[in-house]
Every structure is written in structure tokens, then in C-alpha cells.
Design a protein around this nucleic acid. Sequence first.
DNA 1: ACCTTGTTTTGAGATCTGTCAAGGTAGAGG
DNA 2: CCTCTACCTTGACAGATCTCAAAACAAGGT
Lengths: 124, 124
Amino acid sequence: MSKQALPVVDLQAVACCPPIAARPLDADQAAVVAPMFKALGDPVRLRLMSMIASVPEICVCDLTSAFDLSGPTISHHLKVLREAGLVDSERRGTWVWYRVRAEAFRQLGALLEVPATPAAEVVV
Amino acid sequence: MSKQALPVVDLQAVACCPPIAARPLDADQAAVVAPMFKALGDPVRLRLMSMIASVPEICVCDLTSAFDLSGPTISHHLKVLREAGLVDSERRGTWVWYRVRAEAFRQLGALLEVPATPAAEVVV
DNA sequence: ACCTTGTTTTGAGATCTGTCAAGGTAGAGG
DNA sequence: CCTCTACCTTGACAGATCTCAAAACAAGGT
């Protein structure tokens, strides 16, 4: 399968950006980044993301069994994470394996870094 | 005014947590953290957050004028950010000033850090 | 008191989201 | 070919969300 043909986030557009606390994000940048935060804004997806990012890879069966939710629901949440560009999936035989997209994940974290000389203290 | 009596995020509960890529978040932790990411998951709020975090403080009038949206809409988004525990507001005379909650903001960033020895590479 | 400006609250409508049941697709193994 | 298991897609529905207009609230100036 190797999903990446969907409306996935343009990583190039994110790679450029300094922390959001460094200077105001413009509308275009916000439109690219917000969906990634949004994807993490659901408790189930956040746990899924955490489970996926904590290991090299993990199969859907192991993810599904960790929740009290239907298969389709987990599948839906995984699709959201995929389309946000945060994870990648690959079918190998019977099972589908998910893996974190390290680049995107790290970039997202970088956006929340507090600048070395935080703007919020320069003027004070 | 000095809003903090609302259903605000319990910072203690977050302060404890290692990066989500270090080990799977449990349901309780996810329930605390997800609303913060959710708050950043809207392009308008993400820009508001960025504008607020980029300066020591900023008044609502300056925030509102940066968008093509009604006052009530901006006010609503600011309320979401407040209730997520990400910003703080204070009325001084005519204007209301917003300021980032540095603790919460930094904690959120810490959750996205990639562990020194990423679990995703230990086993591979 | 009254008006003016800045901000929030309330109410309402259109859209989006989380969830499940039912049905569909893909591969493995008879 | 048939069936079984794993996973995804579709369709549907309750509930949440984004937005604005209208109304309320707060502080300052007249």
C-alpha cells in the first residue's frame, strides 16, 4: 500500500518555519500546520500517535486491541493521522504496519520550541 | 479579570509526562493533553497563539484587526486558548491583554520532543 | 447620566467530527 | 474456488465546532 498519495501535508512548507513563538505565523503557514495539531487533538489519535511513535512499527491489530472502539473507528483515526502526514502505513501480507514519519514529527515539535531569547522577554 | 477559574488544564498532570514518543500515553494523560493540541488545531487559533507567544503581551484589538473575522469569533477562539490553559488574559482599563502561559506552552513542546535514544531505533 | 469604544456572551445556522453497522477489498491457506 | 482473518470504505446519525448578528457588559470621557 505505502500510502502517500493522499492530500498529505507539504513537508517542505513546514521545514522552513521557525518556532511559532519566534514570530507570528502567517495564514498560509497556519493552514499547513494546524491540521497536524488538529490530528493530535483527539485523545484516541494522540494515544495512537504515541503508540506508533514509541516503537519502530506496529500493526493495526495491536492498535485496535488497545482501545474499546470498533475497527472502523480506529481505521478512521489512522487515516486522519496519515493525511496529516504524521504516520505512514505499509501492508505486508495480511497485516498493515504503521510507522511514525520522523521528519514531520520532529518538525512539529520544533514549532513549539521556545526561542533561545524568547520574544516574550526581550521587551519586558 | 485574570481568567483562570474556568475548566482549565491541570498543569501538574502534564508536568510529569515524558515525550509521547518515549512511551505510549495512557488514556488519562491523553485526555489532559489532547485538548491543548486541539486548541492549536485551528488555523485562526494557531495564528493567535503565535501572535501572543511572539510578544510579551498583546491586546485583543491588535489580534482582532489582524483577521478578517468578527470580534465575537476572535473572542471565542481566545476563550478556547484560555480554557486549554495556553494563554492568560488580564483587563487593564479599556483593553484586555493576552499573554502566553510559558509553563504550559513549554510542557506541550516537551511532549513532542524526540527521545535522546528514540524507541523507534532501539529495536531496529 | 449618557454616549462611545472595546470585549465577551448568547443564540442560531451551516458545517465538521467521532462513532458504529454493514458491506467491500486484500492476502493466506486450504 | 472458497473461506477466514485483517483492514478499509460507505452511510448514517448524534454531537461538537465555527461563524456571525444581536445583545450584554466594562471602562472612560463627555
